[in-house]
């Protein structure tokens, strides 16, 4: 089922053009980015605000069209006009502000929005909307007004609206930034379920390092270029480099790093609570 669900960028350059100024000012945001996302992969995209990570994500669903270089999404060349809708159906995108991406006044109507645009038959819309809402656990809320839901619930509705299209890739641009801890947990649980049970390729942009630690792979962007690309363990073990880019590492990683600096014998790749508890208890319970 996951055939062709991958993203590919080759030497991608992208500039924003400010037309208000005379003459128009071009600002290059992406300076030749090359990236390959494999089918079924869960990639976290990190970088400080303004680093170009959202711009990159928007190149993958043909919202931004590359100035130079090539972008392929699920096998479609993103620079071709006729591929616009095939790409957007396959590569869904969820945004930061839950309020600003819900179009309709009833949950199920909103989830149906993309399918209505695609001209799907009403009976099929009904089936897919119900299925998508059940997947994200919002089926009981199908008749509710979106503005009465919590932030986490709104984001899950937004995800359902994307899922109804049956996408192969879901791009999430800081979906948890405006949520409280329980909302964040809800959304993360949903994302992981998409990856594991539905075989959806995930690209997650986030500022929360604990969320990034759950990914298969982390790509770090700084000033429009990819500076790191590896599994979470090897990314977070480079504590100094991460901090110099303006990013963070999980608390447990930081602790182990500080202890290692003091000569304590600890492995370099501790990024989860469990690993930390295990390593520290070994030290403390050593007879």
């Amino acid at each position: 089922m996951c055939m062709n669900s991958f993203l590919q960028a080759e030497n991608l350059k992208f500039s924003y053009i400010n037309n208000i100024e005379e003459p128009p000012v071009r600002t290059e945001v992406l300076h030749g980015v090359s990236l390959d996302v494999k089918k079924g992969e869960f990639v976290a995209l990190l970088g400080h605000n303004g680093s170009g990570k959202s711009t990159l994500a928007k190149c993958f669903n043909a919202i931004n069209i590359a100035d130079e270089g090539k972008v392929y999404a699920c096998g479609f060349d993103a620079s071709l006009e006729e591929n616009l809708f095939p790409i957007r159906q396959r590569v869904g995108m969820v945004f930061q502000n839950p309020d600003n991406q819900i179009v309709a006044t009833i949950v199920e109507e909103d989830v149906a929005f993309a399918l209505e645009n695609m001209g799907v038959e009403p009976a099929e819309i009904r089936r897919r909307v119900d299925e998508a809402l059940k997947t994200v656990g919002m089926y009981e809320y199908r008749g509710h007004a979106p503005h009465k839901l919590s932030g986490g619930q709104k984001q899950r509705v937004a995800i359902a609206g994307i899922l109804a299209m049956k996408p192969q890739v879901v791009l999430l641009d800081e979906p948890t930034a405006m949520l409280d801890p329980s909302g964040r947990a809800e959304v993360m649980k949903t994302i992981k379920m998409l990856k594991e049970e539905m075989c959806v390729t995930i690209v997650l942009i986030t500022h929360y390092m604990e969320e990034a630690a759950q990914a298969d792979r982390i790509v770090v962007i700084d000033n429009g270029s990819i500076v790191m690309d590896d599994v979470p363990k090897r990314i977070f073990s480079q504590v100094e480099k991460m901090k110099s880019i303006g990013l963070d590492v999980p608390q447990v990683t930081e602790l182990c790093y500080l202890l290692r600096q003091q000569g304590v014998d600890l492995p370099e790749d501790i990024i989860t609570e469990d690993e930390c508890v295990e390593a520290l208890s070994k030290l403390l319970l050593k007879k």
């Binding site: 801890p181 329980s182 999980p250 608390q251 447990v252 602790l255 609570e273 508890v277 520290l280 208890s281």
Partner: peptide, 20 residues
């Protein structure tokens, strides 16, 4: 439903494991 700092959780668990 409050998220206790990760580091606090680690040391609680260590304490429960008998690390004193």
């Amino acid at each position: 439903g409050l998220a206790v700092p990760q580091i606090t959780r680690v040391f609680k668990r260590l304490d429960q494991m008998g690390c004193n």
